Computed example of a mutant assay.
Amino acid sequence: MTVRPQVARDPQTSSPWALLTCLAGVVVCSAVIYTGHWRKGAMVFALSVLAAGLMRLFLPARWAGQLVVRAKWVDCLILLTSAVAVAVLVMVVPHSQPS
């Protein structure tokens, strides 16, 4: 029988509000895409990820809560790079002209 060590979570670092703010942006993104405006919806998604990256960068760990996953620089690098990549892809994809 193996005994797993108990991981004590600090209740002050498990605040859900920063993550819920970003997830609200994803819900808005889904609603915008559902209406047929995929380009605007994808930009809302990019802004949500950018907001997560900026919150992780500027908020202390106890306020960033569940956005704290890895080291701060790794989290910020992944989130901010992903936000920029999605925004660039949205702008690069050509508009389709109705025939």
Rank of each mutant, 00 (worst) to 15 (best):
1 M>Q: 11
1 M>L: 09
2 T>D: 15
3 V>H: 12
4 R>N: 04
4 R>P: 07
4 R>M: 05
5 P>T: 09
5 P>H: 10
5 P>G: 08
6 Q>C: 08
6 Q>F: 06
6 Q>R: 13
7 V>P: 05
7 V>W: 02
7 V>R: 05
8 A>V: 14
10 D>L: 11
10 D>Q: 13
10 D>I: 10
10 D>W: 10
10 D>E: 10
11 P>A: 08
12 Q>E: 15
12 Q>P: 06
12 Q>M: 10
14 S>K: 11
15 S>K: 10
15 S>R: 08
15 S>Q: 12
15 S>W: 06
16 P>T: 14
16 P>E: 13
16 P>C: 01
16 P>A: 06
16 P>D: 14
16 P>Q: 12
18 A>P: 05
19 L>T: 10
19 L>W: 03
20 L>W: 09
20 L>M: 05
20 L>R: 13
20 L>I: 12
21 T>S: 04
22 C>E: 05
23 L>C: 07
24 A>G: 14
24 A>R: 09
27 V>C: 08
27 V>A: 14
28 V>P: 01
28 V>K: 01
29 C>E: 09
29 C>W: 04
30 S>D: 05
33 I>P: 09
33 I>V: 15
36 G>C: 04
36 G>V: 05
37 H>S: 02
37 H>P: 07
37 H>G: 02
39 R>M: 01
39 R>T: 07
39 R>S: 05
40 K>Q: 01
41 G>C: 07
42 A>Q: 02
42 A>E: 13
44 V>L: 02
45 F>S: 02
46 A>E: 00
47 L>K: 11
47 L>I: 00
47 L>E: 07
48 S>P: 10
49 V>H: 03
49 V>N: 10
50 L>T: 04
50 L>D: 06
50 L>V: 11
51 A>E: 02
51 A>L: 13
51 A>H: 04
52 A>D: 00
52 A>S: 05
53 G>A: 03
54 L>C: 06
58 F>D: 08
59 L>M: 12
60 P>D: 15
60 P>Y: 00
60 P>I: 08
61 A>K: 15
61 A>Y: 02
62 R>T: 14
66 Q>W: 14
67 L>G: 02
67 L>M: 05
67 L>A: 01
68 V>N: 03
68 V>T: 01
69 V>N: 09
69 V>R: 14
70 R>N: 07
70 R>K: 13
72 K>V: 00
72 K>P: 01
73 W>C: 11
74 V>A: 11
76 C>I: 05
77 L>V: 03
77 L>C: 15
77 L>P: 09
78 I>E: 03
79 L>P: 02
80 L>P: 06
81 T>V: 15
83 A>H: 04
84 V>T: 14
84 V>E: 08
85 A>Q: 02
86 V>H: 01
87 A>R: 00
87 A>G: 02
88 V>A: 08
88 V>G: 00
88 V>R: 06
89 L>W: 06
90 V>T: 09
92 V>L: 14
93 V>T: 06
93 V>L: 10
93 V>H: 05
95 H>V: 15
96 S>T: 15
97 Q>C: 11
98 P>A: 08
99 S>D: 01
99 S>L: 14
99 S>P: 14
